[in-house]
Design a protein around this nucleic acid. Structure first.
Lengths: 201, 201
DNA sequence: GTGGTTTAATAACGGTCGTTACGGAAAGGC
DNA sequence: GCCTTTCCGTAACGACCGTTATTAAACCAC
């Protein structure tokens, strides 16, 4: 019973995702969101709650739709392949859509007013989860002999995250795919070799 | 003639710098700025112009007072020392002041509303200048045999910038100095060797 | 001391922020 | 048919945004 919703919730979320991706959490106004979604403000509130709740919905969607390369990478056989897959996938994601370069998790809320603090912390936590997964994967690689005994899984994970974050900043600054792929190659050239091969892929 | 200025312009700029460093350009309100500087809004306007002009004054000050390690690094004898000095100095700057972690040039305006676009572009340009200086320094190093013939100065410069930007993001997320130094060591472990020594420092 | 000049502080400007009453329109149950 | 429920859209809310007109206070020259 009751009147049916006229707009497509999925499409509205996609449109909102693009806005947040481009302008960040605080930089995106409800005027931006209504223009992008074609949905009036009260309808957005009734469907998603307030701005913070909408952003969290968008963030979940981002992980589902655009960040699926992380679990893919973790399943690859060697640590180097894990790293390469993540780095090249990050470059692709950061440059594939010219209207929203960089990464939502970085653009979302790096610094801002006190009101954005909970969102900023959520993004920090999300990145920490990814880094922990990477660290565990590299610990496994070390145990398997895929990484040398001298390798530091936590440092490798943090380093990998740093490079992806740095490339996200550069992509938002307009760096081309080619320039970012050069960064990736440079990062991978430092990758420690396991006992199976010295040359890598 | 006329009434003398009662507040110290230098101290006000320092206080404004801290606010912008912590909250970014758009995240810093005039309420924040007046509280931090102890100067009422109209006095800030008469002394510095509008918010954008104040931010540019602050940005120049940041480069003078906190970013002097870049010219220092460029004067070092080897490319590896240049890279190491930049990376370790960046870690120090990003973590030295617990009330303003990360980097003003990154925190300032990564993503935001359309109104912040000129400031965002200014920060992009500033980073491009630093990257160009690095590239030229590495081209020189290559010519001097300090870097191998296979080295790519532009890729090394972009890589170095990516790592510093990534660490700035991590520092803003609360990473400790130790964790960031582990990132630096990982980044330096990939550094190409010149013809003088194979082991580096 | 007086006049002219610059700064300081109060208070307000129009605009936009995120958020929400409110009234009318569309749907299902009966 | 009507009633209830849900949603849409207009319009407005108070709060804060960056910015400024205005008036009082402090200084120098004469």
């Amino acid at each position: 019973m009751g009147r049916h919703r006229e707009f497509d919730v999925e499409k509205a979320l996609d449109a909102a995702l693009c806005v947040f991706w481009r302008k960040g959490y605080e930089g995106a106004s409800y005027t931006d969101l209504t223009e992008a979604t074609g949905v009036e403000r009260p309808a957005l509130y009734s469907a998603f709650g307030n701005k913070e709740a909408l952003f969290r919905r968008v963030l979940n969607r981002y992980y589902e739709r655009y960040f699926d390369y992380l679990p893919e990478a973790l399943d690859l056989p060697t640590a180097r392949e894990v790293a390469a897959h993540i780095l090249y996938s990050a470059v692709d994601l950061n440059t594939r859509y010219p209207d929203r370069t960089g990464c939502l998790v970085i653009n979302g809320a790096l610094a801002g007013s006190d009101e954005a603090e909970p969102v900023r912390q959520t993004l920090i936590d999300a990145r920490a989860v990814a880094e922990a997964q990477l660290r565990e994967r590299f610990e496994r690689a070390k145990a398997e002999g895929d990484l040398p005994e001298t390798a530091k899984p936590d440092a490798l994970a943090a380093f990998l995250m740093a490079v992806t974050h740095g490339m996200a900043v550069q992509a938002k600054a307009g760096f081309s795919r080619d320039r970012l792929e050069a960064v990736v190659e440079q990062a991978l050239s430092a990758w420690p070799a396991g006992r199976t091969s010295i040359s890598g892929t």
